[in-house]
Simulated assay, not measured.
Amino acid sequence: MSNWKTAFRSFYYETAEEPEDIVLDPATTALLVIDIQNTYLEVPDDEAEALRWQPFFDRMNDTVIPNASNLIDWARTEGLEVMFARIACQTQDGRDRSLSQKKPGFNYLLLPKDREDSQIVDELTPKGDEIVVTKTTDSALTGTNLRLMLHNIGIRHVIVAGIFTDQCVSSTVRSLADESFEVLVVHDACAAATDELHERELEIINMIYCHVVGMDDLPSFISPH
Rank of each mutant, 00 (worst) to 15 (best):
I120D: 05
L31S: 04
V23D: 05
Y108P: 04
A85L: 12
A193T: 11
L110K: 11
E123V: 04
T172N: 03
D138W: 10
Q119E: 08
A189I: 04
R52H: 10
E14H: 09
S100Y: 10
Q167D: 13
I34V: 13
E123W: 02
N107M: 13
D21A: 15
F8A: 04
D62A: 13
H151I: 08
D21K: 08
Y12P: 07
D129P: 03
P112M: 07
I204A: 09
M149R: 11
C210G: 08
T29K: 00
G162V: 04
V133W: 02
L218H: 05
L146T: 07
T29W: 00
I87D: 14
S98G: 14
G143L: 08
V173M: 03
S69C: 00
D195F: 07
M83I: 06
L31I: 06
N38C: 11
A177S: 13
P219C: 03
V212M: 04
W74S: 01
L184A: 01
I72Q: 05
P224H: 00
R59G: 03
I72V: 11
D45A: 15
R9I: 01
E20R: 09
H198C: 00
I153Y: 04
R156K: 14
T142D: 08
N67L: 02
M83C: 13
L146V: 07
E182Y: 05
Y13M: 09
G154H: 04
R97K: 08
Y12K: 15
L31P: 06
E17R: 11
N67E: 02
L32Y: 00
E78S: 10
M215G: 03
E20V: 08
G162H: 03
E78K: 14
L141W: 03
E14P: 01
F164E: 11
F164R: 07
R76Y: 10
I159T: 05
R115D: 14
T137C: 12
E123D: 11
I36V: 06
E179G: 02
C168E: 02
H157K: 09
E81W: 12
R147Q: 12
K127I: 10
N67F: 01
D45S: 15
I208S: 13
A85D: 06
D129M: 06
G128L: 03
S118I: 08
T172H: 01
D58L: 08
V160P: 04
E199N: 11
Q101N: 14
T6C: 06
V158G: 01
P126D: 07
N107E: 13
G143M: 07
L99P: 08
D62T: 14
L109N: 14
Q90G: 11
T91E: 13
